[in-house]
């Protein structure tokens, strides 16, 4: 089982990967969103903020958010390290992504461009 520290590291790695990907920076230059990541089992909260194509990681829950990603700590860690496609837990109902349909799709585009291409 993953720990909160591992999840935190996976999110920082995810943010670094996004920032290092020029294509993603171009695609997300006008996608300014606050993403709340919540681990159901450990009740840990983290925030990813996408602003002008740059993704910034921070600890804790945001006051308001556009997207909320929740699952147990292990699934979240696997997803943000790129070890599993988010589609699998999402379609199984074990990963929940709350937000507008377009934003949920955009988050999927990001993971596809990071790990599937």
């Amino acid at each position: 089982m993953s720990t909160n520290e591992e999840l935190s590291h996976s999110l920082r790695t995810f943010a670094d990967d996004c920032n290092a990907n020029e294509k993603l920076r171009v695609m997300n230059r006008d996608w300014n969103r606050v993403i709340h990541i919540h681990a159901d089992d450990t009740q840990a909260d983290f925030t990813l903020t996408s602003n002008d194509g740059t993704v910034v990681y921070s600890d804790g829950a945001p006051s308001t958010c556009d997207l909320r990603v929740s699952a147990n700590c292990e699934i979240l860690t696997q997803v943000f390290y790129g070890e599993v496609s988010p589609n699998e837990p999402y379609n199984e109902g074990t990963l929940r992504v709350d937000g507008s349909e377009d934003d949920v799709l955009r988050l999927d585009f990001i993971t596809a461009m990071l790990w599937e291409e």
Binding site: E6, H9, S10, T13, D17, T77, Y81, G82, E83, V84, S85, W115
Partner: peptide, 10 residues
């Protein structure tokens, strides 16, 4: 895909 993906896990 699992084998191809290089996990970023330390």
């Amino acid at each position: 895909q699992k084998q191809r993906r290089a996990s970023r896990r330390p």
